[in-house]
Design a protein around this nucleic acid. Structure first.
Lengths: 253, 253
DNA sequence: AAGTGGTCTAGACCACTTT
DNA sequence: AAGTGGTCTAGACCACTTC
């Protein structure tokens, strides 16, 4: 077996210019294709050999790029079948981002009820988080989630108006399953990561009625910003969780 | 270049018996060495080539095993120097498990004050979580943490008595830095993973005094079980967090 | 049988650190 | 210069899926 020193040194030059190893460049190219929709959520992407030919690198280099994307939940590998674009419709991906769990028992599936869906102008803080200007159009959604028929989560959601033009109360009412699945299928916006800030607050106002708790009762406040490819913010969520029979679960590693 | 079919088929046979790929077997062997203290936290482990010779596999197979252990924060790779056993004394590992952050600004380093340290008999629930029997000896520690001189976190901690015989109030008082560093250095118990359950509760009793909040004020309750090698539970923690100027931060992926 | 990802090997060269 | 981990290649064979 021989190496190809000419090729290698050419690439060495390229790499010092771009300042990243080859497999990370390949990874960026794959992410660009995902972002531009060359392969849609749930679809099969080309085989490792095909990608190696396309990018003129070895299969091992493609493999390392795909490995990282699979580790980040952007791709899903299935032995014997191929590599697929991750989707929020995948059974095991459902409610991957909802960390509230019943204290004991599996519990019945969650039920959603949409209370509001209307267009607004962004306030300064919402605009800042969504990287818009204050006054830009946003869609506001309020929804209540039931665990075992007990109202447990009250979510207020803000979405960039431009990307979610067709979102209506009717469309939400007839949809079942995770919202991120709807966003991905109907609006071409795939959520891939989120940051949450969690605090304890006292219940008041409309929350006490909707969640059926006393005024001043402790609630978990979960503020979430969700991001799509390229760290583009695509959703803001402000959730109030009742944690009498449930808890927010987290693993530290 | 040639392969070694004899060797390969031998190993194929071995593998079907053990039912795991070679690199995972190597990974298990490395974990066993870590657990048994062949290499201690902060120490350099043998080079990839040496390990490959020891285990009679190729460097690439060792590499894949070490890659996974590095991804799980059990090992730390440093190019040009070698691979080290992870330690809680590492500057960038300090307070890796404390997810409470100031809402704005970096904030001053955290101060700890130890209020209690005494031996008890385990209650049923503590015993269950620590995989002991009710009545077995445990060490109980209560500590208050200050952010910017404001009392913010009240932790109650239970440790298995057998493994923490020498832990005293004096020893705690003179120690500075993360508790997990002390556990690792003085008691040979390295914490590698934790599970947390988070809820909102109303302040009452001694917590209101120590954290200087009103009776009924909302607090974050963080219940943590920490594990060492082999999923062995080594610590229980019940923390009350004041989230007026701080929040619990989490990233969802 | 053919195609896919998964594992394993061997060898080359690069980047970084220490001697 | 020598040793370490980091990258890249090429090729073999295995496990799984589909035709």
């Amino acid at each position: 077996m021989t190496t190809a020193p000419d090729k290698a040194s050419e690439r060495g030059a390229d790499r010092s210019a771009v300042f990243a190893p080859l497999y990370r460049q390949i990874k960026q190219l794959l992410m660009a294709s995902l972002e531009q929709g060359e392969w849609k959520p749930g679809e099969l992407i080309p085989s490792e050999m095909e990608l190696a030919t396309r990018f003129q690198v070895s299969q091992g280099t493609v493999r390392k790029a795909v490995d990282e994307l699979a580790a980040e939940n952007l791709l899903m590998r299935r032995q014997g079948k191929g590599t697929f674009v991750a989707t929020h419709h995948e059974p095991r991906a459902q409610y991957r981002f909802l960390r509230l769990q019943p204290d004991e028992g599996g519990g019945a599936p969650v039920q959603s009820r949409f209370l509001e869906c209307r267009r607004q102008r962004a306030t300064a803080d919402v605009a800042a988080l969504l990287e818009l200007k204050a006054g830009d159009p946003v869609v506001f959604v309020r929804r209540l989630m039931y665990f075992d028929d007990v109202p447990t989560v009250l979510d207020d959601i803000w979405l960039p108006g431009a990307a979610f033009k067709g979102l209506t109360a009717d469309r939400l009412a007839q949809y079942h399953g995770p919202l991120y699945g709807l966003f991905e299928t109907e609006f071409g916006t795939r959520m891939i990561r989120a940051e949450e800030r969690i605090r304890a607050v006292a219940a008041d106002g409309v929350a006490t009625e909707l969640l059926q708790v006393d005024n001043g009762a402790p609630l978990l406040l979960v503020e979430r910003v969700s991001y799509s490819y390229g760290d583009r913010p695509v959703e803001i969520r402000r959730g109030l969780y009742v944690t009498r029979q449930h808890h927010y679960h987290n693993t530290l590693t």
